[in-house]
């Protein structure tokens, strides 16, 4: 099918980083069943760097290819750098997407930011917990 670029088809045929991360530091889910695209992005973070990223996606060719691409783009990046990845840059890295796919199936970067949000929240929660623990100890 010629509706997708070669790069999209490459990622669709052989998606990179498929799977779940059991002890993920952050998980982000985006999409909904009406549109028919649901993505789950898992990240593993070490020293503020994303050391691993995996995905599971229910969706069309564009949804699968963008998921695969974002997991490739983010590896080795710091949290701050990772947050700069947008749906637009993912689509560009894939050599573009058909216009109709730009808004419905191009969600992978949103999935990633949600995973990062989840990670940050977890860190804060655990910081809070340690603080409370320490305070309790002091008392």
């Amino acid at each position: 099918m010629s509706m997708y670029s070669d790069k999209v088809m490459e990622h669709f045929k052989n998606p990179h980083n498929v799977g779940e991360i059991k002890d993920a530091d952050g998980i982000g889910e985006v999409g909904n069943p009406i549109c028919g695209d649901i993505m789950k992005i898992y990240i593993k973070v070490k020293d503020d760097k994303i050391v691993d990223c995996k995905f599971k996606t229910f969706g069309c060719g564009a949804a699968i290819a963008t998921s695969s691409m974002v997991t490739e783009m983010v590896k080795g990046k710091t949290i701050e750098e990772a947050l700069e990845i947008s749906n637009k840059t993912v689509a560009e890295a894939l050599g573009g997407l058909p216009p109709i796919k730009m808004h419905c199936s191009n969600l992978a970067a949103d999935g990633l930011s949600k995973a990062i949000e989840d990670y940050k929240k977890k860190i804060q929660d655990s910081k809070l917990k340690t603080e409370i623990k320490n305070q309790c100890k002091k008392m």
């Binding site: 099918m1 997708y4 088809m9 669709f12 028919g36 695209d37 229910f58 969706g59 069309c60 060719g61 949804a63 699968i64």
Partner: peptide, 8 residues
């Protein structure tokens, strides 16, 4: 699974 990815 989703239809378009089946068609592709």
């Amino acid at each position: 699974i989703e239809g378009e990815s089946m068609l592709l």
